[in-house]
Design a protein around this nucleic acid. Structure first.
Lengths: 219, 219, 219, 219
DNA sequence: AATGAATGAGCCTTCATTCAT
DNA sequence: GATGAATGAAGGCTCATTCAT
């Protein structure tokens, strides 16, 4: 199978080459300002080649998003394999999420861009379906960590895990969004002085989710 | 001056007519998929008419955003005029923000759309400058409420007001963003079952910002 | 008739007001870059008012051209009324032509602009017909001066007057055209150093049209 | 390298195909009335294709002009390679100029069109720079012929060569301009009866530039 | 009579996508 | 498989002209 194997490997390489270029370009110029030509040029490939690997621009975007999710899920698995308590695992998961989404080039942009049209994802696209199931999996993983934390006492047990997960998830996204917003403001805006670090938001909320010391064990 | 007055009034009406149509279309199709023609058609006006009121598409967008901010600021003033304590004012402000941003057609989209390109706002556009100063004013108002709350004891005094404001602000935005995301997911996604109500996120975080009962004040 | 008279006079004033503005704007921005709005604004009139006096942009242009021709013809009449010999009259006529065509704002542009489309002038327009007959009259006047010069011995008699007139006419136009060309060249172009004065060209050609002294055929 | 070669050749062909169409259309309708769509249709190409070869309308015009200049310069070189005296070379150069500028479709129009706006040429366009240097070269060549004529006795030595060149140049342009003007006049205009041949104007002026027979040298 | 708001045809230009090589 | 020339739909914007006031 060596020939077929090589073929397969080369095809995979090309695909990744394109995805990397797309990630870079989409994130840099924004989804609708990025052109297929930009991507092809940056990937050092012909424009037509892109269409051998992706049906259209939308599917290419989905491919990028799925790629990001995959590496994120891989990192999630690492975290889950560790021996931290639930709270710490949760913190680590969220940080991994924030990092993957926000590392330049800002992957977060890609995801958000797509949400803005309000059109449901095209279920016919392979990557689109993969992307949706990945979202569910990411969310479920976070919920799992919360439940673990509640079981091992590192997190308040009174919050439904999905509610808690959602709060954390949205808080992180809000922080990431702020960083995009900040870029559009002039340097002298009062909002420009904030770091908007996701880790701070995570820590703050996690703090609120820790069990209240049975205060007032009070005599 | 009835003639000049009527002219002025009519002009204002047209402008609002266009802004309403633009708000609707921009929010429905997303900033870059919305065309000036769409807006004109929805406003039941000729394409050229839009350009009598707005220099270009960008300024039209800014006009919409400024309009939203203005009504939000008006609501803010109402809140500030009330006699609630700082914490309650803060909650009311944030709810007003969430409501204004999220009422269909989703105004939030507009703001976010513009952030995605990463281009700084064109300072030459009148509305653009107005928009930036409004952002600052909105943020400052929230900070003010926090400080009031810290002064009257309804909020923990140990958080810098700007940090706290930023946390609340980003949390609300994250929630709003989630609602956009949810629309792109199929109805059977696990995330679709969440309400994603901004008020819940606000309440949760405010709770974390309330003064800890002077635990152990007890002797 | 004082009322009707005043009406008539005012109407004439308005018309001239518009023509002046049009002359200025057309010459400054070029025919196709000049907008009706530009003209109206410069005339301190409403845009619609222009259409009360001129059927459309084309007729307005024709009106301007006819106006220029009229003042040129008036000047021609002055020259013809003088007591110069034919050659001197001819020189004076050509100079008057060059000056009228080239005085800033460059009227010459207007005439040339219109020639470029290659479309015959719209015979239905009143001004268009007037313009054409004026051209003929201008040309005829020049021919007349040549014939006078040939009769009074100040010009060579061997050139058909129409041929001679055409040569002078085109030479002057060529000079005027050169001045337009020069404006488009960078200051360091070798052509930029020339004055391109029409009077020099006129003098040179007139010199060639003077009778050759029966040079020393005589002993 | 037959493949690369063929590509190159085809590209050149397409470019010329477009230039031909553009020359035709620009000359027929005038610069500002001609649309890119007109050009594309006449070239039997898609509209977008034009932009693969020319950055924009302006550069396309420049391309046409440069093409005309190039063939004119080639003809100039032929003339200069001959063994005529200076006066005859000069006559041949001017005739070549007139022919190239005036052959239908009238190239002259193109050049003139551009001069009318009074905007300096966009130095950033490649073809624009080429065009300017070609103008200088054309002019210099004419000057050179004059100087040769003055040296070999076929032309009067008392005229500065640049002055003489300018007079000839403008006279030819004036003639060409007249032909454009004539097209706009009705067939019954008195001016319509003239041939307006450039060669006649050239001959006339050259005659005036020939040395005066050493009149009366004769005893 | 004068106005200027409204119109929409039409322009230049871009870019996702196709297809012959 | 890889390419990039070609395409044409579509977009933002302008402006001559009309018409209700």
């Amino acid at each position: 199978m060596s020939v077929a194997d090589r073929r397969e490997r080369e095809r995979e390489q090309r695909r990744n080459q394109i995805l990397d270029a797309a990630k870079h370009i989409f994130a840099k110029k924004g989804l609708s300002l990025a052109t297929m030509n930009d991507v092809a040029t940056h990937a050092q490939l012909g424009k037509g080649t892109l269409y051998l690997y992706f049906k259209n621009k939308e599917e290419l975007l989905m491919g990028v998003v799925v790629g990001l999710q995959s590496s994120m899920l891989a990192r999630f698995d690492e975290v889950l394999g560790g021996d931290q308590n639930g709270c710490e695992q949760l913190r680590a998961l969220l940080r991994a999420y924030a990092e993957h989404m926000n590392e330049p080039p800002h992957a977060f942009k890609l995801a958000v861009s797509r949400w803005l049209t309000g059109e449901p994802f095209d279920g016919e696209l392979e990557n689109s379906a993969a992307m949706q199931s990945n979202i569910a999996r990411l969310f479920t993983t976070v919920c799992g960590a919360i439940e673990r934390g509640q079981a091992d006492g590192s997190l308040r047990p009174d919050l439904p895990s999905t509610d808690a997960a959602l709060k954390l998830w949205t808080a992180v996204n809000g922080t990431l969004l702020f960083r995009l917003q900040r870029q559009c403001l002039p340097p002298d805006s009062p909002l420009s002085s904030f770091s908007g670090k996701a880790s701070e938001a995570i820590d703050f909320i996690l703090e609120a989710m820790k069990p209240r010391l049975a205060t007032g064990a009070k005599t």
